[in-house]
């Protein structure tokens, strides 16, 4: 079943700390693990699954990955027990000495890649493909609509979704 709300943990730096934090969080809601911490969410999925009652999703960002790695993440997320992914472009920070930014795919291209994997049964049919929606003017709304019209299960919003899309939108809030 598609969730209507997500709890979001942007960064996981330590498994113990993560479990402790989740132990005092309301259980049952869909949880999204972000990739901004030291730990790759794929690495802690096994331990999390036994302590979290709701579905767990991976926020899969395009940042720092080429298309091959994104494909690998999609397949790995499905096989590790994630209920789905929330696709996003990811943050771009400018800092001295930074590594070369990689944005090989954008969320629309990631969506197409994920749907192709579903068609080929590489990832299961019930694996949810959500996309972080741009929020703000008409351009943002048109793109969010594009995601939904082109196969996304959900558009994920930080703020109240536009009325026109609310039946296919989910809210996300930080833990």
């Amino acid at each position: 079943m598609k969730p209507v709300a997500f709890l979001y943990l942007p960064a996981v730096d330590d498994t113990g700390q993560c479990l402790e934090r989740l132990s005092v969080t309301e259980q049952g809601t869909a949880l999204v693990l972000g990739e901004y911490g030291l730990l790759n969410p794929l690495a802690i999925m096994h331990e999390l699954k036994s302590s979290w009652e709701g579905d767990i999703y991976l926020e899969l960002t395009a940042a720092g990955k080429n298309r091959d790695l994104i494909k690998s993440y999609l397949v790995s997320a499905a096989q590790s027990g994630f209920a789905g992914v929330v696709l996003a472009s990811g943050l771009f920070t400018i800092a001295p000495g930074m590594g070369k930014p990689v944005f090989d795919l954008d969320p629309a291209q990631m969506l197409k890649l994920a749907l192709d994997l579903k068609t080929k049964a590489v990832i299961p049919e019930n694996f949810i493909i959500a996309v972080r929606a741009p929020e703000g003017g008409e351009a943002a709304l048109a793109r969010a609509r594009f995601f939904l019209e082109n196969g996304a299960d959900l558009a994920v919003y930080k703020n109240a979704p536009p009325e026109a899309l609310k039946d296919h939108a989910a809210l996300i809030r930080n833990i």
């Binding site: 472009s89 943050l91 771009f92 930014p101 944005f103 954008d106 996309v131 703000g136 793109r143």
Partner: peptide, 20 residues
């Protein structure tokens, strides 16, 4: 676009502004 996105905008758009 700093991310070079070919089908935008991305989720980081701030109203009508670029987040970067």
């Amino acid at each position: 676009c700093p991310r070079g996105i070919r089908n935008g905008p991305c989720e980081c758009i701030d109203g009508t502004r670029c987040d970067v």
